[in-house]
Simulated assay, not measured.
Amino acid sequence: MRYRALIAGLVALCVGFLTACSEEPVSLLSDRTYTYDQIRNTGLANSCPQLPETARGEFSLDSGESYILTDLCLEPTSYFVKEESTNKREEPKFIGAKPLTRYTSSLDQVTGDLILDESGVLTFKEKEGIDFQAITVQLPGGEQVPMLFTIKNLVAQTPGGQNGISTSTDLKGQYKVPSYRGATFLDPKARGQATGYDNAVALPAAADDEEIVRENVKRTPVLDGEIELQVSKVNSQTGEVAGIFQALQPSDTDLGAKEPVDVKIRGLFYGRVEPAV
């Protein structure tokens, strides 16, 4: 009897461990309060607050008045990497990738200006917040693709004719993608853009050879990305909005040593609209 109880306990422990490791973190509800112990070591801190399914309202904005979109949070849920086909007749396809970065992938506390002009165009301009995260994903073949998920300097707009925010509001825009590594980063051969050696060959004259000049000359290019935010839930009383997003941006270039690949990121977002003080 004692052995049966011991075996049952071990089975329960293993099942609980596997469940905790395999399940996605549950999203936070915006109308609930969580303690530190309820969030600690659960992955909930990486989840964006979400509105209930009954939040299907809308609210109007005054043209010319100043508003802010604050506490904007973007939580990635799936990643796709663009791969060239071995057959030249086939178009490149986006392949699903598995994130290797666990609980530090969400953007949070992002704030920006929200303006509705006279033609009914709603514009969001990102200003500050935790607006970047270093993420690495892995393709089915084992190849790992690092990237800097971000919405820096995002300017997103809706089509004209808007008078507020509803469940049919879509914001589209472009943003800047800084280099995954900074100018002071040194590669394994101590080469960097602002520090370290200029080259890693015995004869400095050979450093300009076409085969290795790209490895020697480090660069930190700032590239472009684009994103679409689709509002699907609105709480007209609190000004909260939530929905889904899809971003398309380049991956890391290894300080200019290789060409970036396109990465498609999908996930959930949450924010709150307030009058500007």
Rank of each mutant, 00 (worst) to 15 (best):
Y3E: 11
A5I: 13
A5W: 08
A5C: 10
L6V: 08
A8T: 09
L10M: 12
V11H: 08
V11Y: 14
V11Q: 15
L13N: 01
V15Q: 09
G16V: 12
G16T: 06
C21L: 13
E24G: 09
P25S: 07
V26E: 04
L28N: 05
L28R: 15
L29P: 02
D31T: 03
T35N: 01
R40V: 08
R40C: 09
N41G: 11
T42G: 04
G43A: 07
L44C: 06
L44V: 04
S47M: 08
C48F: 02
D62W: 06
D62E: 14
S63R: 10
S66Y: 03
I68R: 10
T70N: 10
L72V: 11
S78I: 07
Y79N: 07
F80P: 02
F80A: 15
K82W: 05
S85T: 02
N87I: 11
R89S: 12
E91P: 03
F94K: 12
F94L: 14
A97Y: 13
K98V: 15
P99H: 10
S105I: 05
S105T: 15
S105N: 07
S106Q: 09
L107M: 04
T111P: 07
T111Q: 13
D117T: 08
S119Y: 05
G120Q: 00
V121C: 09
T123G: 11
G129W: 14
I130T: 11
D131I: 09
D131Q: 09
T136Y: 15
T136M: 14
T136R: 15
V137K: 09
Q138T: 14
L139T: 10
P140A: 07
G142Y: 11
G142L: 15
M147L: 12
M147A: 06
K152V: 14
V155N: 13
V155S: 14
Q157T: 14
Q157I: 13
Q162L: 15
Q162W: 14
G164P: 01
I165Y: 00
T167W: 08
S168T: 14
L171Y: 06
L171D: 02
G173F: 00
Y175K: 10
Y175L: 11
V177A: 04
S179W: 03
R181G: 04
A183T: 12
A183C: 12
A183E: 15
T184V: 15
F185T: 13
L186P: 00
K189S: 12
Q193D: 10
T195I: 15
Y197E: 09
V201P: 05
A202N: 14
P204Q: 02
D208P: 00
D209N: 14
E211M: 10
E211H: 06
V213E: 07
K218A: 06
V222P: 05
G225V: 10
G225W: 02
E226R: 02
E226S: 05
L229I: 00
S232K: 03
K233P: 00
K233N: 04
Q237E: 06
Q237I: 01
T238D: 01
F245S: 05
Q246K: 11
L248D: 08
Q249F: 04
S251H: 02
S251W: 00
T253L: 03
T253F: 03
D254H: 11
K258D: 06
D262T: 04
D262I: 00
V263S: 08
G267K: 03
L268E: 02
L268M: 04
F269E: 02
Y270M: 06
E274T: 07
E274D: 06
P275H: 03
A276G: 01
A276K: 05
